[in-house]
């Protein structure tokens, strides 16, 4: 009967016989690195710009430039916490690297998922604001008030975006709950 060392030696030989095409992997990883940098830059830019643009819209609305600016400013302002959290989470995850054990990495990911779940209200508020704005515009149109040309298509676009945002947040909530559940299972396995 083979002893433990023989078994381990045979397993190791089989295991290590699996290799990768390093050149192909290098090219694909480089592409991935570029894509990751681009994504992060885009998210940083969008998050940095979102707050001043929202405040500018609200200021324009306050200065009497129209309620559309108030709505756009409100929606952007409502979505801002979630954008910021997503960006912070992405940067934290990028830095997590070797700084933690697998348990630590899971705990950090769980905290991030919980925070995202708690902040989904901001997506719901943004969807409700857009929906209310669209309903208001359609209401004015249907009541035969004089509305600008193109009001109905704009209102329908807002309504569509509101509906999509609502569905997205519901799907995201399900995903985040599943992630947290899976994380707890793995943590209890590791703590055994």
């Amino acid at each position: 009967m083979p002893d433990d060392d023989d078994i381990l030696g045979a397993l190791r030989a089989d295991w290590q016989r699996q290799t990768v095409d390093t050149e192909r992997l290098y090219e694909r990883t480089q592409r991935r690195q570029r894509r990751t940098r681009l994504l992060l830059t885009g998210k940083v830019a969008a998050t940095i710009l979102a707050l001043p643009i929202a405040l500018w819209f609200l200021w324009l609305a306050f200065a009497g430039e129209g309620s559309t600016f108030a709505l756009a400013g409100g929606v952007l302002l409502a979505a801002f916490p979630l954008m910021l959290l997503e960006l912070v989470g992405l940067m934290k995850l990028a830095r997590l690297g070797a700084g933690a054990s697998p348990e630590g990495a899971l705990r950090a990911a769980r905290t991030q998922a919980e925070a995202a779940l708690n902040l989904l209200w901001s997506a719901r508020v943004a969807a409700l604001l857009l929906g209310a704005g669209a309903a208001g515009l359609l209401g004015l149109h249907l009541a035969d008030h004089a509305t600008a040309a193109g009001t109905v298509p704009i209102a329908l676009v807002w309504l569509g975006v509101a509906g999509a945002t609502w569905l997205w947040q519901a799907r995201r909530a399900r995903q985040l709950n599943a992630e947290i559940q899976r994380c707890d299972t793995m943590l209890s396995e590791l703590e055994g």
């Binding site: 697998p102 990495a105 793995m186």
Partner: peptide, 25 residues
Amino acid sequence: PFVFRIAHNRSVTHVMRQAARRKGD
């Protein structure tokens, strides 16, 4: 150990994130 620690850290969070997409765990 540095390289493989990162590999395991990334892998456990990958499994966690995939859980939601796989309907079940």
